[in-house]
Design a protein around this nucleic acid. Sequence first.
DNA 1: ACAAGTACTTACCCTAAAGTATGTATTATG
DNA 2: CATAATACATACTTTAGGGTAAGTACTTGT
Lengths: 121, 121
Amino acid sequence: MTAIKESSTIQENKQYALEKCPVTFVMEKIGGYWKPIILYHLSTGDKRYSELKRAIPAVTEKMLIQHLKQLEADGLVIREAKPVVPPFVTYKLSNAGTGLLPVIDAMAAWAFKVKDGVYTI
Amino acid sequence: MTAIKESSTIQENKQYALEKCPVTFVMEKIGGYWKPIILYHLSTGDKRYSELKRAIPAVTEKMLIQHLKQLEADGLVIREAKPVVPPFVTYKLSNAGTGLLPVIDAMAAWAFKVKDGVYTI
DNA sequence: ACAAGTACTTACCCTAAAGTATGTATTATG
DNA sequence: CATAATACATACTTTAGGGTAAGTACTTGT
């Protein structure tokens, strides 16, 4: 979980943007290539780690858990581990995570409008 | 506008995500620290370049035009330049850009819910 | 005995995004 | 004659994010 230099303009600006801009706040949570995709896959119900891995073949294991851990730390997903062997771990959306689905939907709606040429870009 | 290496895994994955995931498509357009903030400032009406600069003091000029140019290239904002001197350039939201406002609003709504403790994260 | 499956972890590298600093053209104004 | 104001541009450096590759622990199946 890559160390961050505690004093860099980029971090200060992130701080500024986080406080000033709710959108940036959301971006912090669901930004990155994989988080939205993970969220999407969890929106249809809980999934095991290995299920997610198979569902998103292009993601590396490092990226997958790294983002799962971040999503968990941000309270968007809930991890449940059964103390068995081989391990049995499932991930599911929390209330906050579920609350993000309308945002995801609004984004998807806009994306499809653009692709359907509704907006003559 | 930083040149991109045409063959790197990161670019291939971005491609994958762009095709598979409408959310990533939106992220491409409004991701980055400054784009949402710029969009937000333009949501209340057109602004001159210098007005934006003053309205967002933490952004550097390089970042500001770089993002404005990208937003323009993506058809989200429209640039209008009057051929006078000193230059007089205004930026405003296009239809597509305006179409994004509901997304921004949904994000803001979620962010405020989180901050108000609606979701016991 | 050894591979396979599970859910990770860790060390190292590479690249794209962000930041710093300075320069450009044009005209008005003191 | 020099400075200010406008809207940029550009060379160079830094940093955070993403990728590669390999290893860990524990058990079941062959």
